[in-house]
């Protein structure tokens, strides 16, 4: 029996969870839009830069986190509701189960942020170009890496009910120490140089810069290979975390 079949089903279930209600999805999208249109517009009036143009790509990148963390939340629910034990009885290895959840995160992030990207393109028409294809591919790669971050949060929060609290903190760290919301020069003047290196290596920075690179007015610090490398590192960390979590459930019956 093919393990691929089980993988596909697990991925489908994960995606089904994120896109489970049109209400929730509409709400999330409208929130991101209000971020772009309200916060972006108002901040533009009190800031020294055209914040709307800077911020719209940032919102697209932040959307990846929303989707990837929600898939992580699905795994968390699986742990607390006992479904992971059911998965353990299915013909799929622990490693492929881990990979399935990471791919789910990649797909959920790409689909969700793809919608945001489409909206951002209405605001910033120069985004619509051939560069969209590598951008979407990068979104998938980064989103899988963020799935790895969700795995780490799952490991930290265990079977307790703190998943979202920890997720909020981790999300804030990744978004805050990136150029998603602020340009790198504003960060450099406040943050120690060692953390600035983290900002540059952060895959969110790389993706935000990749999107901004297609805007004629924006200067970027894009290093495309760093995006792949840093996302892969996060993916591997996530893979190890999920493998560990599932092995623990297999060994002890719980995390």
């Amino acid at each position: 029996m093919s393990q691929a079949r089980v993988m596909l089903r697990v991925i489908r279930v994960d995606l089904g969870y994120f896109f489970r209600t049109k209400w929730l999805l509409l709400t999330l999208i409208s929130l991101n839009l209000s971020d772009m249109l309200v916060a972006g517009l108002v901040y533009t009036k009190i800031m020294s830069i055209d914040y709307l143009t800077f911020f719209a790509p940032g919102v697209v990148v932040a959307g990846l986190f929303t989707a990837s963390l929600d898939v992580g939340r699905r795994v968390h629910l699986g742990l607390t509701e006992g479904v992971i034990q059911y998965y353990m009885s299915l013909p799929i290895s622990v490693k492929l189960l881990a990979v399935s959840h990471l791919i789910s995160a990649g797909l959920a992030g790409t689909i969700y942020s793809g919608i945001l990207l489409a909206v951002a393109s209405l605001l910033l028409p120069s985004l619509i170009s051939l560069s969209l294809i590598p951008i979407v591919a990068s979104m998938f790669v980064v989103s899988m890496g963020l799935g790895g971050v969700a795995a780490v949060i799952n490991l930290i929060s265990g079977s307790g009910d703190r998943y979202w609290q920890f997720a909020e903190g981790v999300q804030s760290l990744f978004l805050g120490f990136s150029t998603v919301f602020y340009p790198v020069y504003a960060i450099k003047s406040v943050i120690p140089s060692s953390i600035v290196n983290f900002v540059k290596l952060n895959p969110l920075t790389q993706l935000a810069e990749e999107i901004r690179a297609s805007l004629p007015t924006e200067h970027t610090i894009l290093q495309p290979y760093e995006l792949v490398v840093s996302s892969f590192v996060l993916f591997m960390i996530g893979f190890l975390c999920y493998s560990y979590i599932f092995s623990e459930v297999n060994k002890r019956g719980k995390l």
Partner: peptide, 21 residues
């Protein structure tokens, strides 16, 4: 050979297992 075993086994758990929604 856990995968071979899983292909042949089906278990109905004591506590029903399913995503709540």
């Amino acid at each position: 050979e856990p995968l071979k075993v899983r292909e042949m086994v089906g278990i109905a758990f004591q506590e029903p297992r399913g995503f709540w929604r």
